[in-house]
């Protein structure tokens, strides 16, 4: 095999892997998007658990108080 053939073969191999590299980049982005759901879940759970009990009791004064306290505690 000549040096030129060898160089061509290496170049072809690198080209073949380009789509794979792009796929890995996309997968990394998608994984990161999923990781970000952790904070979203925590934020929603925090709001719901702090507010649900007074809402369930239909206690408007208590809801107002909890909202004010929650806002101050963010």
């Amino acid at each position: 095999m000549t040096t030129t053939d060898l160089a061509r073969r290496v170049r072809d191999r690198i080209r073949e892997r380009e789509p794979l590299r792009e796929r890995v980049r996309q997968l990394e982005t998608e994984v990161q998007e999923n990781r970000q759901l952790n904070r979203r879940i925590a934020e929603l759970t925090d709001v719901v658990t702090e507010l649900l009990i007074p809402l369930e009791a239909r206690d408007q004064d208590r809801v107002d108080e909890v909202l004010a306290r929650f806002r101050a505690g963010l």
Binding site: L37, N38, R39, I41, A42, E43, T45, D46, L74
Partner: peptide, 12 residues
């Protein structure tokens, strides 16, 4: 991680 964030909110 979600529970760790929630815990941090409670600590705050």
């Amino acid at each position: 991680p979600a529970d760790i964030v929630l815990e941090s909110y409670r600590i705050t």
